[in-house]
């Protein structure tokens, strides 16, 4: 299939991009990596009047340190994120989850910012951003603002970005000390979207492997219209020092979630998977065996 016709602009700076987006009006769409958007256009499920391509805005690409955070340009490609030494050192959970996104060719084009701004709750990275307390930096005609990840994902495919704003960068607080991480993705075939995913990062007491859990971060993929942060489970996990305790703490992870019932699975099955996968992710991240 073939997209319907649209106008196209390819600004080379963020400022240009913001004004191009404003000028293009409300039916414009931002083209990041295009790996979700272009198939949607080909199937004629969307008819944007203009595409504002961020692919030539170099300032939106790359990973840098900024004090206690990493700043990841929104147009940094998945393949760059997952291999980036800073990401691997300070945000290993993001590197691990990014490596499970789609396939290598898609990861060469798809971008971190594009995936977050698309806000598909089945996407792997939103739950990670949530678990890592990322902040999303938006640039619009009114200037720059920072949105906490917990406020960013508003609804299914809907974010706190206003139509004239562009996601410019993602600030990911560094995980300092000994953090174990694990992204458990459950899907039926390698290419498929997650039926459920669990992103877990845990800090161990005394900053060494073994021992008990001092702090935990849990994000859930595809367990509702938005990614879910499992805060109560995070609290319950503190002090857990063996698999049984992790399992016990994980058992409430699905409480309050409203996962979809679709071809991938019914809601109750997803809730069950969330419990199983949370225990597994945390156990693995904490190095508590098996």
């Amino acid at each position: 299939m073939i997209p319907a016709a649209f106008d196209y602009v390819a600004p080379t700076s963020l400022a240009e991009a913001v004004s191009a987006l404003s000028e293009a009006g409300e039916d414009a769409k931002i083209l990041a990596g295009g790996q979700s958007l272009i198939p949607v256009l080909r199937l004629r499920l969307a008819f944007p009047s203009t595409l504002v391509d961020l692919g030539r805005v170099d300032e939106l690409r790359g990973v840098r340190e900024d004090g206690d955070s990493l700043v990841i340009g929104a147009m940094t490609r998945h393949s760059e994120v997952m291999d980036d030494p800073l990401v691997r050192q300070y945000a290993g959970l993001l590197a691990e989850a990014t490596a499970t996104v789609a396939d290598p060719a898609v990861r060469h084009r798809g971008t971190f910012g594009g995936a977050l701004a698309h806000a598909d709750p089945a996407g792997d990275l939103a739950a990670v951003a949530l678990a890592l307390d990322a902040e999303l930096v938006a640039e619009g005609p009114g200037g720059r603002r920072t949105i906490a990840a917990r406020d960013f994902f508003v609804n299914y495919l809907e974010t706190a970005l206003s139509p004239d704003e562009i996601l410019a960068a993602v600030r990911v607080p560094k995980l300092e000390g000994f953090w174990g991480v694990r992204y458990e993705k459950f899907h039926r075939v390698a290419q498929a979207w997650a039926i459920v995913g669990v992103a877990a990062a845990v800090r161990m007491d005394g900053d060494t492997p073994g021992g008990s859990i001092a702090e935990a971060r849990i994000g859930l993929t595809n367990m509702g219209a938005t990614p879910v942060r499992a805060s109560s489970v995070e609290g319950a996990l503190v002090g857990a020092a063996d698999r049984a305790a992790v399992q016990e703490a994980s058992s409430s992870v699905a409480e309050g979630t409203s996962p979809p019932s679709d071809l991938g699975g019914q809601a109750d099955y997803r809730q069950h998977l969330a419990r199983v996968l949370t225990a597994r992710a945390v156990t693995a991240a904490a190095g508590l065996g098996g």
Partner: peptide, 13 residues
Amino acid sequence: GESVKSCSVLAVQ
């Protein structure tokens, strides 16, 4: 030098 799926890339890109 990097693999891409050319059905999901615009020629202008």
